[in-house]
Every structure is written in C-alpha cells, then in structure tokens.
Amino acid sequence: MSESPICFGLYVPPQPHPLLAPEQNEGWGELRSAFDTARQRIEESDADLILVYSTTWPSIIGHQIQAHPEPEWTHVDDDFHFLGSMPYKFKMDTDFADGYNQNCGERGLHSRTIAYDGFPIDTGSVVALKLLNPDNRIPACIVSSNVYSNRAESIVLGKAARDTLQQQGKKAVVVVVATLSNRMFTEHIEPHEDRIHSAKDEEWNQKIMEFFSQGRLEDLSQLSREIHGQIRVQKVVAYKPVWWMAATMGQSNNYDGEVLAYAALHGSGGAVIQLTPTSGSFGDKEFDEDDVEIYSGDRDVLDKGMI
C-alpha cells in the first residue's frame, strides 16, 4: 500500500463567527479554539499544501480552481456584515491548481483555473484559511462546488485532486468547509441565544459526529443523500462535501476521527473535526452506489429514442 498523500482531513464550518466574534458566545469560542488546535497541528505536520473544498463557493461553468498566486481583498459576508470585515491575503499553489485542472479534464470533468484580481473568495474559504494558515506558511488551493453537480462529479473531482497530489509528490491537509445541519435562524438572535435549530438537526448532527469520530468517512459518503434529505436546507441538489472528502482521502473507513468542537452557529451545526489516515479500520460496509472513475456526463436518454 503506497503512502497516503493526505496528512489529515479537516471538516470546518463556514460562518464567520469563530473568526470575528469568538468572545460573544461560548460555543463560538470553542470552535475558535478548535481552529487554533487544527492550525497548530497543520504547522506540526509535513504538509506541502492546504486543499480547500468550499460549499460556500458555488460555480456553474464546471468547477473552478483558485490559481491567483496572491489573492488579496477585504471580504464582508452577505448576512453577517455587522460582525465586521475580513481582510485577507493568501498564497496559492498555482502549480497544483494547474495540475488539478488538468486531471479534472483527464477524468471527464469540465473545470477551469481562475486568477483575477479582486475575485470574491467566499466567506467559508476566507474563514478557514485565515484561521488555519494565518501566516500563509503553507500554500493553499481552493476548489468550488458546482451547483448542478451530483455524486459522480463530486467523487471524480476528489479523485482528480488525489491524482494531482500523487503526481506532484505533495502531501496535503484536506479542508472541507461545510456545516453539518445547515438550517439557520431566519431572524436576528442575540449571541447567548444561539442553539441548534431543532432537536432533529441535533440528533442527526450527533449521529454524523459519531461516524466521524469512528473514522467512518466512506460510510458517511454513502449516507450523503439521506443526510441531505434529513437536515440540509435544499439550496443545492445534494450534500456533496463528504463525497469529495471521501474520494480525495482514499474512499475508506481507515481513519482516526476526532471531533475537536461542536457548537451552534446561528442555528446551524458547526463542527471542527479531524480525520487522520490510519491502518486500522472500522470496517467497510456493503455500499449501494457504484464507484465512479471517469465522469461521462449526463445520460441523454431523451436523445436515445427511449421514449
């Protein structure tokens, strides 16, 4: 078995509260402390790259890969603008971005690199990189989430990332930016009033974290459609981040899982979770859906005389 190109994976929330207002709520502060722990572990790792998949960066023309060497701006969140501004200057691994784009094409995906001054990097990516890599010690890469993509594209997108790491001989910390349950309160609340939106969301969040803590990433990947139906507000067609994360990290349950913190973020479920590859395994289950190596596009049944 070849050495994994993944140092470890992180699942972190996109909301700006841990960055901008950790002192206003105990849970937000705990998430901030967990971000700080993760930052320290990244610094102590031998990672060459921080690879971010952000659910708050939607794209339409395939998947977009950030390739500006030093994107710089001051970002303000659409909803939480009152918490403050987020000035940033990041360092991107443009060689990785180019290679990733190439490998997406090799696997049948449409993708493109983007490198434009002033491009609006999304809240989730800004929060993650500012907290996990504040001094730009390690170069990063960010990939978008296509609004129309589903399981096949997301898994193939993850495999293309892994291809690139292996080809370039790089080790990465993989960062998925996403909430667990994503239903927020639709009205203003005071920081001390924050809680998970519903008992159902809380119950599912606990189940998901149980899987994560047991290292069962591939099992979560297989449960993704069920999670989407149960606790995800239907903004997009599917709950994709664990598909991408599982595919990038190697499609197994061979991880040590650790939930570093869990708290409500305006009603949604925010968690900082670490998955570290290990030789042990919870054991793989019998999976319902096929693995996908190459994305071959939509099946044009209407054009094939089937109706």
Partner: peptide, 19 residues
C-alpha cells in the same frame, strides 16, 4: 436573516463575477 438594505451613501470598488 430577513431582508437587508444599504445604509451608506457611497460605494466605490470592483465587482468580479464569481461565476
């Protein structure tokens, strides 16, 4: 979280389409 309105008189910057 509800409907928001702009409360400042002047904005000058650059808009880059994310898509």
């Amino acid at each position: 979280i509800g409907t928001h309105f702009l409360g400042l008189p002047h904005f000058k910057s650059k808009s880059v389409d994310p898509v």
